[in-house]
Amino acid sequence: MGRIAVTILLIFSALQGSGMNIYERNCVKCHENLPVSLDKFFFNYLLKYSSERQVKQALRNYLKHPRRKASLATEELLERYGIMPKSNLSDEELRKAIDIYWDKYKVFGKIE
């Protein structure tokens, strides 16, 4: 148990060392400027796609091919900020970013 904690600490410090992770660099940076926080988007995806597999798949599809019709943002938000620009991350990077996003906001293990 102690060893795992040490390992996790080491990983965290390494991440700190390199600054921010791929999700923070590519997603949070832009979304920080929006009035709607990222967790709201997450729960909208959850509301529509339910499971981890389907949420991740929908996110990946949207990030690669953003379309107004597929967007889960409100009309007002879209009017004001338009749809998100197409991601230029590689498939692998995208997968990593989405995994981090999922782990950050998933409800598994958080309900009491």
């Binding site: 967790d39 729960f43 389907q54 958080k110």
Partner: peptide, 24 residues
């Protein structure tokens, strides 16, 4: 779902037990 950032207690009732499952 709406207030998950503030409140995380599962809705319980002594009359029944329950469970929730996702699409998979």
């Amino acid at each position: 779902h709406i207030y998950f950032d503030r409140y995380r207690t599962y809705p319980r009732n002594s009359l029944y037990r329950s469970a929730i499952y996702d699409a998979d």
